[in-house]
Amino acid sequence: MSDDQHCKGVGGAGHRHGISCREVSEFLLAYIERDLDEDAQAEFDRHLERCPPCVHYLDSYRDTVSLVHACGRGELDAEERRRHAPPEDLIQAILRAKRAKGAKGAKDAKPTPGEE
């Protein structure tokens, strides 16, 4: 697509005012999280009003975030839950390990969480 065709149908004025499509792409996260200052946020809005491809990009970026959120937790899927159900073996191993360490008492060691 040529520059001329880029913004066809939205007044033909183009959008080479303020920010470019590259900047929209680079600063999209800051725009979505409203981290930009007021002027930059307004420039962004003006660009989007005139640039359908960037609007499509913004929409698909948001869809990606929604999809990751909806799909990422595989354990919420019934089938996945069955496949990855914590085995009783693991529970018993944790209880055995705790008994082995617990003989000394629960309050004799205070490493930071996660420390071995």
Binding site: L90, I94, A97, K110, P113
Partner: peptide, 17 residues
């Protein structure tokens, strides 16, 4: 599984926090 076991033991040791 190893990480989960380690996490529960850490939680046990550090329950004061």
């Amino acid at each position: 599984d190893d990480a989960v076991q380690e996490a529960f033991l850490s939680a046990f040791r550090n329950f004061d926090s």
